[in-house]
Write a protein that binds this DNA or RNA. Structure first.
Lengths: 190, 190
DNA sequence: CACGGTATACACCGATCGGTTTCCTTTCGT
DNA sequence: ACGAAAGGAAACCGATCGGTGTATACCGTG
């Protein structure tokens, strides 16, 4: 059973929603979520307006952790190229985990075909922020077309995470970093 | 209403399943599928063992059309590089359609987190065959590492289709072909 | 005409969906 | 110690899920 101590019902619900919707998909039922969180359905509907709202909130809550996951541990000492490559090294590393099912934000965007869904909006902002980060690094690294390079990197990032999550591809040999290196070189980055 | 003439109930069901599961996701109900196909639920369960089996069959049925969609119109006259690029030109072209929601096979793999699901198996074989095609072209084109290049191309293919389908990226300016060109060049292809 | 196969319509099954409500216990401020 | 308020368990709502059972209509073939 999940730890039900020391966290508020709200946080337990958000954690359960993040975990179960990632493992089973966004179509997971409220009943299962509440059971997992150890919170009554009644309480959850006092904390959130709807299942959709809770799902969006659970995605939003993970953003800082997600960002930290992809951020280079020593940003000052690293070059832009190293900071970009670090993102893909983390992706490759995460994909080795047995419970890895791809980037949760991309998965939500694919599962909820509706881009207007509150959870889709959150997911898209996460993707847009990663693109902005890549673009800034590309600029600092002297890429010929920073915006183009950033968009290319996201193609690889989402392609790799989707394929690894679906168990169609295995990133353990460094496929993502190898591909990114080729693109960085082609873009004229330091 | 969908055309209910001239096609067998089986074909009407498979078409409806392909269309609705692509538009609304694999969680679309049987009731809706049968209504769209103009076939009774009873008949459907005489033609297919389960919803999962019908979904897998509907995916399989589209394979020849899907392959033809990505095949260069004049394979003899085209170079390996042209045949590869043609795939991504078609992808960019398809993504302009209002009803485009990404590659249906990748979507199924992401939505059905279970790789053992019959529909997932079909989807994976489609992906594997595309990888084999890329690999063959890469070999013919003199790429240094044909297998690596093929896997890189699929990263871009699936990343582009997922992002375009989720309306997070716009391929109209040729982002996919540009990226692929960079990878082909880096791989030393003719 | 009678036949067998195939189709339909439709009720029905238990389970679950998102969401609400009722009842009762626990907790807390005074 | 008392009363209000909050929270939990569970019944309940109508709808839908995947899947069946049943009875009836249509069909080409004998």
């Amino acid at each position: 059973m999940a730890s039900t101590d020391k966290l508020s019902p709200r946080d337990r619900l958000l954690d359960a929603a993040a975990r179960l919707s990632y493992r089973d998909g966004v179509s997971v039922g409220i009943e299962a979520l509440c059971r997992e969180a150890g919170v009554s359905k009644r309480s959850m509907y006092q904390l959130f307006d709807s299942k959709d709202a809770m799902l969006a909130a659970s995605l939003e809550r993970r953003v800082p952790w997600y960002d930290a996951q992809l951020a280079h541990p020593d940003p000052e000492a690293a070059t832009p190229r190293e900071r970009i490559l670090y993102v893909f090294e983390r992706l490759e590393r995460a994909s080795r985990d047995a419970g890895y099912h791809g980037c949760p934000y991309l998965a939500v965007l694919v599962e909820l075909k509706n881009p207007e869904h509150p959870a889709s909006v959150v997911a898209r902002t996460v993707k847009d922020r990663l693109a902005a980060t890549f673009r800034a690094e590309a600029e600092r690294g002297g890429a010929r077309d920073p915006d183009l390079l950033a968009r290319q990197l996201l193609l690889v990032f989402d392609g790799a995470s989707a394929r690894a999550g679906a168990k169609v591809e295995d990133l353990r040999d460094g496929l993502a970093t190898t591909t990114v290196t080729a693109l960085l070189d082609a873009a004229g980055m330091d």
